[in-house]
Amino acid sequence: MASAEEVAKEAERRDIRDRWLLSAPALIIIFLAATGPLLIVVIYSFLTPGPYGDVVWKFSTDGWLSVLMQRDIFDDTLAFADAHLSIFWRSAKLSFMTTIFTLFFGFPTAYFIATRPARQREIWLFLITIPFWTNLLIRTFAIQEVIRNEGIVNTVLIKLGIISQPIQMMFTDFALMVGMTYVYLPLMVLPLYASMEKIDFRLVEAGYDLYANRFQVLRRVIIPLVKPGIIAGSILVFIPALGAYVTPRVLGGSKNMMLGNLIELQFGQGRNWPLGSALSISLMAIVMVALLFYVRSAGRQGGTHG
């Protein structure tokens, strides 16, 4: 009979092997239908666009060049591509603003839920969860109904005699802001709530005991305690906002494109797959930087929030 030590070693080896076998199907599916194709995008970004879409297998850096530059059709000189730059800029700006707005509205909402009695808390949380799981498209469509020229806001304002002509809100950056804040708000509230729920309110009592007023308690006690939630929520909103496709397509129209729509354009009418690939990788790179920032700050917080 083998010794106990050998048996234990063998059991451990078998355990690790079994664990690889068990996780293999998930890893393979994700590799084939998510991770692997990303690598192909990298390759495509260095090829030449085909005349009817797709690519010609010829090496070229034009895809990457045209992310920021524009080649003049007549004299072949390079200049900054204002159109692309402004879309990058708009995407970053709108995503940032969305993050700020969702934080502004989400923080009090999460705090409100977290300070309810336990039973009520579940009901409020449930009310936040429902829009979260409601189809993004339906929510975008819903906000469109509200801000359209014939929508509720304009109708009510006209009926009240405040305005005589409907205010044009659709297809503006304002519409995009409202829409994205609306659809991403639950993404901010949920992680904020998760860290607020853990607040030990004796610390708040201690704050008041030591002569802090309400605002000072908020700023010096509560906000530092829920910082991990603030960071997590901001990342959860910023990343999908940056790559948003549906909301700008429905509410922004063709003039108010964001990065997602610019990418789609290259695979549709633009017929420039290498440029589209290069733009995709650029977007992914920005997201990775944001995630890295998150991982680092989460690590500094002592990993209190996943």
Binding site: S23, P37, I239, G243, I263, F267, V287
Partner: peptide, 20 residues
């Protein structure tokens, strides 16, 4: 690896799958 689909913007995955 398992969480990778959550990390990448959907539009990027969409483009990658379109190509592949």
């Amino acid at each position: 690896f398992i969480n990778q689909p959550l990390m990448v913007p959907e539009i990027v995955t969409a483009v990658a799958l379109l190509i592949f």
